[in-house]
Simulated assay, not measured.
Amino acid sequence: MSKPDFRLFPNVLIGEGTEVGDFCVLGQPAKGRAPGQDRLSIGPDGVIRSHTVIYAGSSIGARVQTGHAALIRENTRIGDDCSIGSGCVVEFAVVIGDRVRLHTQVFVPEYSVLEDDCWLGPRVVLTNARFPASRRAKDTLQGVHIRRFARVGANATLLPGVVIGAGALVGAGAVVTKDVPADTVVVGNPARPLGRVSELEDEGGLVYADAARPTVAASRHHPAR
């Protein structure tokens, strides 16, 4: 691990080979918690780039990379081989599986679940406040659930409680107000079905890139770990 200028609170475990950039804050205590009261665990061989803030009480897997100025709040679990892009905000009590990629400035609110191999484009916004003007808004928060191999295009907005099915594809700029079935392409505002992902031409692996074509039936109910 390199030794640049960053703030390290007590009770932070950093795996061997992980690099930490300048001006990072690792182990920031949540409101009402004392420094070191909750453990932050970061796995080996990762890259935590400059100005990233990660709160205590979270667990970050192996080979995770953050962009610059990413924020990861408390009680969040991130799996192995993930990428959290520059300016991303991952709020507390979020579960992210393995090999998930969040591009620049993605917002992931409380109680969201992103299963293995999800891909979210730049400035995707997930929401969780079903009744934002209510005095009891915090009592009714409901996160988005994105299942395995789903892809969400740039600037899409997903409303509270929406489930994006395994292998689904959400078009850029879409506003998703209802659940999206597995293997379905949706576009527009409000998002509407356009076809099936499995019927798209995939010459040269352009649809699935580095991921194998998912077996939707097998992955539909696979929870994030």
Rank of each mutant, 00 (worst) to 15 (best):
K3R: 14
R7Y: 03
N11G: 04
V20M: 04
F23Y: 15
G27E: 00
P29T: 01
K31W: 03
R33A: 07
G36H: 00
Q37A: 15
D38C: 04
D38P: 00
L40F: 03
I42N: 01
G43T: 01
G43K: 05
P44L: 02
R49C: 06
S50R: 12
H51R: 11
I60S: 01
A62K: 15
R63E: 05
G67F: 09
I72Y: 03
R73D: 11
T76H: 03
C82S: 15
G85T: 11
S86D: 06
G87C: 10
V89A: 04
A93L: 02
I96K: 07
D98R: 06
R99L: 03
R99Y: 11
R101C: 11
V106Q: 12
V108P: 11
P109S: 04
S112G: 12
S112Y: 05
V113K: 13
E115I: 00
E115R: 14
D116R: 08
C118D: 11
V124M: 10
L126E: 08
R130L: 12
A133L: 15
S134V: 13
R135M: 10
K138F: 06
D139S: 09
L141F: 04
I146E: 11
R147C: 15
F149P: 02
A150L: 08
R151T: 14
V152G: 15
G153K: 14
A154K: 08
N155S: 07
A156P: 01
G161M: 04
V162S: 11
A166D: 11
V170M: 06
G173Y: 10
G173R: 09
K178S: 12
D179G: 07
P181Y: 11
A182T: 08
A182R: 05
T184F: 09
V197C: 06
E199F: 00
G205L: 01
G205R: 05
P214S: 13
P214C: 12
S219C: 13
R220Y: 01
A224M: 06
A224Q: 07
